[in-house]
Design a protein around this nucleic acid. Structure first.
Lengths: 163, 163
DNA sequence: CCCGCTGCGCAAGAATCTTTCGCAAACACG
DNA sequence: CGTGTTTGCGAAAGATTCTTGCGCAGCGGG
């Protein structure tokens, strides 16, 4: 699945710009990376088709939309057989409060990124949903105070552009 | 800062669509939300200007770009005075490995989302950077096995559209 | 030396963006 | 009720951008 595509300096620049502003016009993008619009569009399309660009997403302001509580939950299961891991993973997808989730190794088995409107909703989710889910052993929660950094998913610096 | 803007059903539809595909053309967006293009564009612009839409971002495929290691670090500090919290927050911004970071309350003080090319790089980051940073008390790490859910930041369901 | 491959950029038509303007519905107020 | 104000939709048109087709240059391999 990971194709490890060989990208040149221009491709890296495109990725950096689109990670910074995914709605930039192709004309502006082509100007920034130093080629004309048609080849630039072809490169973007190729990056999308090969899956290197998985998609585009608007970043929403959660508090302004009434979602004031962001929290992380570390979940430990009793049994970690493959079927049980898959079952819990599937369950996270059915909880709207859980925005993204990771299977992890270490002291816990899952890490959930949760967003809710208020603390009461979050607490009832933890108590009535999480801890009452079969096979769930431990639930440790960390309420967020504020986000202190929000870069894109992948670091793209000048070094990538010299390949 | 959180404006708690009053949004109607069409605004919520716009947010839902753009969170799903941030590069959709305005014509396509207007068709999906049921109004013509000009008022649709005005609404999007207003959502951007009021900060409800914070920006747009391309979602990159980290493994395909050679970033095979995703991990989370829970950091506990010795002292949690305001100046020290700010100092550590500032430091997270200088580490390229840290892609986003949260100040949290609970057993730890910070949660770091880290992405690196390989395990050795991550380990040397933890040992040589994190644990040797002044005021850092505890560092707990959770290596991710795989992401099991990746929805947008905010849940937008049909209920929002009946306001 | 020639051939095939790759990728750039020009040019033109299609689609989209963006502004302007008229209009209708909702509302406040006398 | 009637009137003025506000708000937001949608048609129209020009500007911009997207998208495709095509010619050309650079680069290896036979």
């Amino acid at each position: 699945m990971p194709i490890k595509a060989d990208l040149d300096a221009i491709d890296w620049k495109i990725l950096r710009e689109l990670q910074r502003d995914g709605r930039m016009t192709n004309v502006e993008l082509s100007r920034r990376v130093g080629i004309s619009a048609p080849p630039c569009l072809r490169r973007v399309k190729r990056l999308e088709e090969t899956g290197i660009i998985r998609g585009y997403r608007a970043l929403l302001n959660a508090p302004a939309l009434g979602m004031d509580v962001v929290a992380f939950c570390l979940i430990g299961l009793h049994h970690q057989a493959d079927a049980e891991l898959k079952a819990f993973a599937e369950r996270t997808r059915s909880w709207p409060i859980v925005r993204d989730a990771w299977m992890v190794s270490g002291e816990s088995d899952f890490l959930l990124h949760c967003v809710t409107s208020d603390l009461a909703t979050f607490q009832s989710f933890v108590i009535e949903e999480l801890t009452s889910t079969p096979n769930v052993d431990t639930v440790r929660t960390a309420l967020t105070i504020r986000q202190v950094k929000d870069a894109g998913l992948v670091e793209i610096n000048a070094l990538n552009q010299t390949q």
